[in-house]
């Protein structure tokens, strides 16, 4: 973790007030998951409201990725309930597809499709999942590429872009599907320090526009700037949940204190 405090001051401050709605868009009720006999998620309860921005942090291996991957069914949970956008996740493939259409996700390693140009990466899902005609899909793609500030890269291939640019393309790719919810799994962890800010800035803008977001990240500056709530996980459980100022200045749980002292010591 590079100097988190410094990057906090550098980040652009939110310009608008970010509102949170009443409607619950993600609900996890007593959710458990096992990998074989390994109990990786234990009794997870979480409600996310429309427009809310949640930051999830915790030591490596604590189950953060697994939890958010359960939300769009990249992983299957075995017990409890996950309700996304009013649809309860089950083995019903139709429902899974329906949820994935509304939930965008960005990964640590971007997962762009290397054999397709940036433009093709962006228009593929709108065209083939949402049945939007190519012209319209390309227009939308250009709009989002402009928003993440790399419209000139449209015809290049992912392998020709820097890490920061690739992650911004990945964000734009998700946005092209007009998702209601965005999930981020350590989007800046694989980036060189000088590229972290360009990605975080895009995420902050997204937050300002009222996107519902769950971000797994250790960027504490980002958490302080945009999160309504910070969730701390350890050993497959949610240990502590609080609004950012309280969370950082006054952590309640021993393990939270230890974790914070470790990442802030760097």
């Amino acid at each position: 973790m590079s100097d988190s405090n410094a990057s906090a001051t550098d980040l652009q401050a939110p310009t608008k007030e970010m509102k949170v709605g009443e409607e619950v868009v993600i609900e996890l009720n007593g959710m458990h998951k096992w990998y074989g006999s390994f109990h990786v998620l234990k009794d997870i309860n979480l409600k996310v409201h429309h427009g809310e921005r949640i930051v999830v942090c915790g030591p490596s291996g604590s189950g953060k990725s697994t939890m958010i991957r359960c939300i769009n069914r990249l992983e299957e949970h075995q017990q409890g309930q996950i309700i996304v956008n009013g649809i309860e996740l089950s083995n019903d493939l139709k429902k899974i597809d329906e949820i994935r259409r509304e939930v965008g996700m960005c990964f640590q390693h971007f997962n762009l499709f290397p054999h397709l140009s940036i433009m093709e990466n962006l228009v593929l899902a709108p065209m083939w999942v949402r049945n939007i005609p190519r012209g319209e899909a390309e227009e939308t793609a250009m709009k989002y590429l402009t928003r993440v500030k790399i419209p000139e890269q449209a015809l290049k291939f992912p392998g020709q872009l820097s890490g920061g640019q690739q992650q911004r393309v990945a964000i734009a790719r998700s946005l092209c599907m007009s998702p209601k919810i965005m999930l981020f799994d350590e989007p800046t962890s694989a980036l060189d320090p000088e590229m972290i800010k360009e990605v975080l800035d895009v995420m902050i803008e997204l937050a300002e526009e009222g996107m519902t977001m769950i971000c797994v990240t250790h960027e504490m500056g980002f958490a302080k700037t945009v999160a309504n709530r910070v969730i701390f996980m350890d050993g497959g459980e949610i240990i502590e949940e609080n609004e950012p100022n309280q969370f950082f200045d006054n952590p309640q749980h021993e393990r939270t204190q230890l974790f914070l002292s470790q990442i802030l010591a760097h």
Partner: peptide, 11 residues
Amino acid sequence: GQYEGAQALGL
């Protein structure tokens, strides 16, 4: 990651 990227987009 390629499978996950595609699935996450709803393909």
